[in-house]
Structures are given as C-alpha cells and as structure tokens.
Measured scan of single mutants.
Amino acid sequence: MADQLTEEQIAEFKEAFSLFDKDGDGTITTKELGTVMRSLGQNPTEAELQDMINEVDADGNGTIDFPEFLTMMARKMKDTDSEEEIREAFRVFDKDGNGYISAAELRHVMTNLGEKLTDEEVDEMIREADIDGDGQVNYEEFVQMMTAK
C-alpha cells in the first residue's frame, strides 16, 4: 500500500514521523504519540494510545517504525480525509473560533508540534493556502489545501 505514495508524500511523512519521534530513535512510543496528540489539544487515554499503536504495529514490538507509519498514512489517505476530520483539524488551528486561521494561530500550532518556523515560513504557508488574498485561511481554503492532490 505504501508503494502507491509519491516521493514527495514519503518525504512529508518522514518529516511528520520525526515530529512524533521525539528522541530520534526511529520508533514512536505511546508516550511520544501522547505528547504530540496533547500538543494538538487531544486528550487520549493510555489505552487509546496503545490501541492506536497496536493498529499499525505490524511486528508487534509495541512501537511504530517508519515503514509501519507509512502504511498507516497510506491507509488513512485511501479513506481520504472525511469532512469531519478536516473540520476537526481546522478547529485545532482556529484557536479563537472566528472561522479563520491567522498567521499567529498557525505559528502557535506548529510551535506546539515542535516545528520552529520563521515568520517568513509561516507567512508563506498562509499565502499558499490563501486563495482570496485576505491574509488568513478560511474553512473553504483549508479544505482545498487539505484535499489538493
């Protein structure tokens, strides 16, 4: 299944994987998964984290390695993001709930994920998604960005 991913997608997933893999040992533990999910405003229980890991832990060693992570991402993409997942993601970014993602809100979430971005990089990300040019990202623009192939 992971063989249907483009090189660009694999590179993006590698970057995402390293955000989860806090200690850089090449595997994601339940603790690391929990840290990232909490930084995104989720509050999973230990059991939920274990279930999430077990779902993709092909070799049964209790952690997720990069090939397992790729399989999980490929699977998720095949079920292409349901509207509800996209709306949920939008809410994570839209901290003040005004229906727009500002540069400050984007920077806040990315920083929580451990991504240190310059102001230019954040502005560039907003510009790429900002179709109507108002300097922020509304829900429609967010959907376009998330579903762009």
Rank of each mutant, 00 (worst) to 15 (best):
R75P: 09
S102M: 04
G135D: 05
K78A: 03
N98W: 07
D94C: 10
E105P: 05
I10Y: 02
A47C: 05
G60T: 08
I64L: 09
T71L: 15
N98Q: 02
D134A: 05
D134Q: 08
A58S: 08
T80Y: 03
L40Q: 14
D134R: 04
M37W: 14
F13D: 15
S18G: 01
E105A: 14
L5G: 06
D134I: 02
F66I: 06
I10W: 12
V122M: 14
M72E: 02
A47R: 12
N98A: 10
E7M: 06
P67V: 10
E48S: 05
E88G: 11
H108G: 01
D132K: 07
N43W: 04
I28T: 10
R87W: 15
G114P: 05
V36Y: 00
K31L: 09
K31E: 14
A103M: 15
I53Q: 05
D21E: 14
T30M: 03
N61R: 03
E7K: 08
N54E: 04
V122C: 06
E120T: 02
E128P: 03
D51P: 03
T30C: 01
A148M: 07
D25S: 09
G41Q: 01
G135F: 01
G24F: 10
L49V: 14
K116H: 15
G97N: 10
E85I: 14
I86H: 08
E46F: 03
E115A: 06
I28K: 07
K14Y: 03
N112W: 05
D81C: 10
D130G: 10
F142V: 00
S102H: 10
Q136C: 01
Y100R: 10
D134M: 09
E120W: 10
M145W: 08
D21I: 01
D134H: 01
R127T: 07
D119C: 15
M77L: 12
M110H: 05
E7G: 13
N43Q: 08
V143Y: 06
Q136I: 07
K22Q: 12
E85K: 04
T27F: 03
M110I: 09
D59E: 13
F142E: 09
D21C: 15
K14F: 00
M77A: 15
R87E: 14
E46I: 14
G114F: 03
D65S: 14
M146V: 13
G99A: 05
E32V: 13
L49T: 02
R38L: 06
D96G: 12
L70E: 00
D134N: 13
D51I: 08
A148S: 06
A89N: 01
E120G: 13
D79I: 06
A103C: 00
T30Q: 07
T118W: 02
N112E: 09
E8P: 04
F142S: 00
V36L: 03
D119Q: 01
P67K: 03
K149L: 08
E55A: 09
A89S: 14
L117A: 09
M52R: 08
A16T: 11
E46L: 09
E141A: 02
E68D: 10
E105H: 15
A104K: 03
G99C: 12
A11H: 01
E141L: 00
T30Y: 04
E15P: 02
Q144H: 10
E12S: 05
L117M: 00
T45M: 03
H108S: 12
D21A: 03
I126T: 11
Q144G: 09
G26D: 11
K76C: 15
E83P: 02
M145C: 08
L33V: 07
G41N: 02
E88C: 07
G62R: 14
V56H: 06
N43I: 14
F17L: 12
T27K: 04
F69V: 09
R127S: 08
N54Y: 13
L33D: 00
Q42D: 01
D81R: 12
T6L: 09
T111M: 03
E12H: 10
K31M: 09
K116S: 07
M1F: 08
G24D: 12
N54C: 03
L70G: 10
N112F: 01
T118L: 08
F13C: 11
P44Y: 06
T6Q: 08
K149G: 07
N138W: 00
D130V: 12
A103I: 10
D94I: 03
F90K: 04
K22M: 05
I131K: 05
T63N: 05
I64R: 05
A11E: 01
F20S: 11
F142P: 06
S39I: 12
T71A: 13
D130C: 09
T71Q: 09
L5M: 11
S39A: 10
P67M: 01
M37K: 11
D132T: 03
S102K: 01
F20V: 15
M1N: 08
Y100A: 07
D123E: 09
F142M: 11
A2R: 00
A104E: 01
E12R: 02
E141K: 06
E55S: 14
D21Y: 11
A129D: 00
L19H: 04
E83Y: 03
D81W: 10
D134V: 07
L70Q: 01
E48M: 15
M146K: 05
G135N: 05
G99E: 01
T63R: 10
T45N: 08
E85W: 00
V56R: 04
V143G: 08
I28S: 09
K95D: 01
I28E: 02
V109S: 05
E121Q: 07
G135W: 02
R127P: 01
E88N: 15
T27W: 04
R107A: 14
Q50A: 05
T30F: 07
S102C: 14
L40C: 05
E68T: 10
K78M: 00
H108D: 14
A104T: 10
G97P: 00
F20T: 02
T30D: 04
V109H: 12
A2H: 04
D132S: 15
T6V: 15
D79F: 09
G60F: 07
T45L: 11
E141M: 05
A2W: 02
K31S: 05
D51Q: 08
A103G: 10
D81N: 10
M125D: 05
V122E: 04
L117H: 01
S18E: 04
K14W: 08
E121H: 05
I53K: 14
E7L: 06
L49W: 10
P44F: 08
K22Y: 05
E84S: 01
L113G: 00
M125A: 07
T80V: 05
K116M: 08
D130Y: 09
E140N: 10
G97C: 10
T45D: 00
K76F: 07
T35G: 03
E124P: 01
G41A: 13
I86V: 11
A104V: 11
K116T: 14
V143E: 14
F142Y: 11
A58I: 02
D132E: 09
T118Q: 15
D65H: 03
F17T: 00
E115V: 10
S18Y: 10
E32A: 14
L70S: 13
G62V: 10
E15G: 12
E121G: 10
I10F: 10
T71G: 08
E85L: 05
L106K: 02
E46T: 02
D21N: 10
A129G: 11
D21S: 10
P67R: 09
